[in-house]
Amino acid sequence: MSAALWGVLPYLAVVILLSGTIWRYRYDKFGWTTRSSQLYESRLLRIGSPMFHFGLLVVVVGHVVGLLVPESWTRTFGVSDEFYHGNALFWGSIAGICTLAGIVILIYRRRTTGPVFMATTTNDKVMYVVLVAALVLGLWTTVVAVYQGHDTADYRETVSPWFRSLFRLQPDVDAMAAAPVQFHIHALVGLLLFAIWPFTRLVHAFTAPLHYLFRPYIVYRSRDVGGAGARPVRPGWSPVGTADRERGGRR
């Protein structure tokens, strides 16, 4: 059981993530977008979206530091456990709460603003469930850590060694199995999130436009070769209509 969960599943998730992303990029570049709904509503978006995204960036940095930097390294640099955990809890809670509050605002907006809700697909709804679950469970591990003290739930001795061992292709299943149950659930939901990632709107994160900082402002390109002629019908050419018209049929 442990071997399947912590030895096989992570690799399965990574395979789905990578192959799914490559497939999506080859197959569906047209669908690769943020699917922004700012045109419909911007008052709540202006608060919720930056809160969520910046919070999430800090959360990602927190995960990278917590999972990749071994305990022995920080000790070598003289960082005390109390100081480390205090910081991790402090920044982690702030970022986590920001992210959660942000996404709550965004989901509220999505549900209550008519046009935004209309533009929400089933795919989006499933993604939101998994994303919020991962966030809440992540915060839950933090809450438990505060409540019980870090000694009983030190992920740096269980989760982190397991995570690093994954890269060595020799997963330390026992270390992860020894972690408290809240970490197990959080990790599983996290793996699920990575597995569905390429098939949701979350892909826009993979094309974060950092190259904008370095590219020239004016872009010249030669005429698209093989452009004209009997061109295939491109996506995005669906007819205008309302639900009424579809119900009534065309006549």
């Binding site: 402002y217 010249y220 390109r221």
Partner: peptide
């Protein structure tokens, strides 16, 4: 074009021809 300069993705281009 300032639209082109504003595009983070570099998706807007001017045809050289």
């Amino acid at each position: 074009p300032s639209c082109m300069a504003s595009c983070p993705s570099g998706a807007i281009y001017k045809r050289a021809e």
